[in-house]
Design a protein around this nucleic acid. Structure first.
Lengths: 224, 224
DNA sequence: CCGTATCCAATAAGATACTG
DNA sequence: CAGTATCTTATTGGATACGG
């Protein structure tokens, strides 16, 4: 028992490191463990609760998620905070530096899009698909569009704003948007990235805009 | 024995996956295992032998390196090839797609440069430091320089060419460069990123150029 | 409901010895 | 040199039980 405890402590202190001055290696020391970067990804569009994170990371177990959150906090990438009453729930929020990891998430996503084994029918989280819009937008195709598109994923709302060939994405109430999509994120992904028909998801408002929106995110050619 | 074999096969088929359509998650399925990306990094500037890789990845064990190389090969990111006689040695080479992972390596490195815990005195490989030049070059500071700088790291030679505020880096014979640095990569890193004096490394040719070269790679402000 | 803590079985990683 | 084989240790995932 005593010995177990000691071993445990030594592990947490002297954790497995690459001992390499290369920045890439150090980054992997910080966020290279299994699940770490995906947890951080889920925080990219605002604070989340433990159960939301668990729900959007299929296959993660409570103990691993809890451990990853502690590590992210210790390393300065996230913080735990309790929302003011009457909400009084606790949420996890990315720090500034944590948010700066988004280019990593994007580089990985853009690179993986060429993978012959990528299966777009797997489940995807709301945050993931919204972030993928940021990553994959083709500014040429988006040029001249000035509009807002809302997304309703169950409880969560997001708003994307197109303007000057750029896109901004944030959590928010989708009600006043030019078009509003109501769907499971996975079904939306099937439309945008899998060529499924627009009818397979719920669209209110400017349907033409929604249709055009789904064409703004071209995938690169596959490798094999 | 039979049972062991069966278990093994099942493992390689149904490997641990995130089962997430997010490209980031799929990328991590491909190169998210421990050491994978660092092995790929070492292939970024040309083919390498098994023992070179082992030597430049301090702490990796033969079996893990061998396994990672097999995986990289299976996934289409690297290939094993035997150099034509009389060399007849076998080397590992990144595929086109493997090379396209460099933005990932760069995003990680750039992000980690802000880490308060980054220790630049740790050992670093020749490939790593040359790649870091690609990542960290400040085009403003490099503007107007048209020159080649050679690097001799033991057996391996590299050439960096500055021009129009950009840098290109490749393996090559450093002999005809405007300046040639002979040093251990770690000592070079101490000069460029740690403020160590230029005298601590060997420099031939245009010393003023070499001095200026070392100032072209500013680090971002630390986080904490 | 929101997590935490603990236990167990399955995998992955590390150390080391050894072979063609 | 280029890996295998073997053994030990660490991490992960899944189940379950517990506390606020």
């Amino acid at each position: 028992m005593q010995l177990d405890k000691l071993t445990e402590e030594r592990q947490t202190e002297a954790k497995r490191s690459y001992d390499d001055a290369c920045g890439t290696a150090h980054a992997l020391d910080l966020i290279g463990e299994r699940w770490s970067l995906l947890v951080l990804r889920e925080l990219m569009l605002g604070p989340r609760r433990f159960s939301e994170l668990k729900g959007d990371l299929p296959g993660i177990s409570s103990n691993v998620l809890a451990q990853r959150l502690v590590e992210l906090e210790q390393r300065g990438l996230a913080r735990k905070l309790r929302l003011p009453p009457p909400a009084s729930v606790q949420v996890y929020e990315a720090t500034e530096w944590g948010l700066e990891a988004e280019p990593i998430v994007q580089a990985l996503g853009r690179w993986a899009a060429r993978s012959p084994r990528h299966d777009p029918t797997l489940p995807i989280s709301g945050v993931s698909i919204l972030l993928s819009f940021r990553t994959m937008l083709d500014p040429e195709r988006a040029r001249g569009i000035d509009a807002t598109i809302g997304f309703r994923f169950g409880e969560s709302g997001y708003v994307a704003r197109l303007r000057d060939g750029t896109i901004t994405v944030a959590r928010g109430v989708p009600d006043d948007c030019d078009a509003v999509v109501t769907a499971a994120p996975t079904d939306l992904a099937a439309v945008v990235y899998g060529g499924a028909p627009l009818d397979s998801i719920g669209v209110e408002g400017d349907r033409t805009l929604a249709k055009r929106f789904t064409t703004l995110f071209p995938l690169p050619p596959k490798v094999a």
